[in-house]
Nucleic acid binder design. Structure first.
Length: 330
DNA sequence: TAGGCCATCTGGTCCT
DNA sequence: AGGACCAGATGGCCTA
């Protein structure tokens, strides 16, 4: 804005937004901005009268600091100029729509990555970083073919995130953020107890499939996740332990290596009920309306609540401990 | 008050 | 020619 050269003051003045095409053609969301743009940003420029322009011209000076001789007057804006202005306005509108679409997509992304909160939104860049980490962490989980190490999972989530976002993620998980301090290289360091000390051993830790997968695809709970999804062509990429340092080869080149609709959801706006269940709201969930890998699944890391996490289907939150255990030990 | 984040405008480039 | 995309510039808002 206002980046036009001084020599072209006429270009700084634009007709009132919408003068050339109807407001109805604008998305509703744009009308507010349209109004704001009109009132706040445009009026001052548009109020510049021809007389003021004339004065401006007369105040121009040549290289010697003397008033410029009257040369051929600048062409008054003609039809071509008007057309240019209209096109510029249309381009601006399209650009706003495009950016709004981008923001909508980003908002959708915010809702499916951990730590979605309506009140404390992640920034754009942090959303993208977290999403990337999230995809990576899920990929790792799938390739491992067993229930995730939650601590490692969260550490992966937090890699490269700013300290505030790391705190937010940790807060969503109700972890002590100090346990996920990021060192000067951007690597998330665990500075507390060892993972195996901090994380209560999974009951039946040799089980390599999530609970609740007793269906045909998970008979006996022995088949790895891999059964569900991805092409073997991507397998080498899972070997890399870090989404950052390893620079995933498929980054930006390939789609996520699996079609995995189940997601962890760490709903920040869902106040966890610490007192009742002595566990927090880490959910292994599915996107609405989809059949998820994690259907009916639930991880219960610490029956004693020592490292209290629940991972369960978003739409089917397990309530009873018996149901939990039954599901888990299935 | 400085810095981060964001929305918007703008001109350039590429593509259809 | 016109639209999509991109990046730079700018100013507003918010927070530490």
């Amino acid at each position: 804005m206002l980046t036009l050269p001084f020599e072209e003051p006429h270009l700084m003045r634009e007709p009132r937004f919408g003068a050339s095409y109807s407001r109805e053609s604008l998305p509703e969301s744009l009308e507010k901005e349209h109004d704001r743009s009109n009132s706040d940003m445009r009026e001052a420029e548009e109020d510049m009268s021809d007389r003021e322009e004339e004065e401006e011209r007369e105040s121009e000076q040549d290289d010697n600091g003397l008033p410029k001789k009257r040369g051929p007057r600048k062409k008054k804006p003609g039809k071509e100029f008007e057309r240019t202005k209209v096109r510029r306005h249309e381009a601006n509108t399209r650009e706003r729509c495009r950016m709004h679409g981008l923001n909508d997509a980003l908002e959708s992304l915010r809702k499916v990555v951990p730590c979605y909160s309506k009140t404390q939104k992640l920034s754009k860049i942090e959303t993208l970083r977290l999403a990337k980490n999230y995809i990576w962490a899920l990929s790792e989980t799938l390739s491992a073919g067993k229930r995730p190490d939650l601590l490692a999972f969260v550490q992966t989530l937090c890699k490269g995130l700013s300290q505030p976002t790391t705190n937010l993620v940790a807060g969503c998980l109700q972890l002590n953020a100090r346990n996920f301090l990021t060192d000067h290289n951007g690597e998330v360091m665990f500075s507390g107890r060892s993972p195996y000390d901090a994380v209560y051993p999974y009951p039946g830790s040799d089980v390599n499939t999530p609970p609740g997968h007793s269906g045909s695809s998970m008979d006996g709970g022995a088949k790895p996740f891999r059964h569900y999804s991805y092409s073997g062509a991507y397998e080498p990429y899972y070997e890399n332990p870090s989404p950052e340092g390893g620079s995933p080869p498929f980054d930006g080149q390939m789609s996520p290596p699996m079609n995995f609709n189940g997601i962890f959801s760490l709903k920040h706006d869902d106040p966890p009920d610490y007192g009742k269940g002595s566990h927090y709201g880490m959910r292994y969930c599915s996107a609405p309306g989809r059949t998820a890998l994690a259907h009916n699944s639930m991880y219960r890391v610490s029956p004693e609540g020592r490292f209290p996490y629940d991972l369960h289907v978003r739409s089917q939150s397990f309530q009873a401990q018996g149901e939990v255990n039954g599901s888990f030990h299935n």
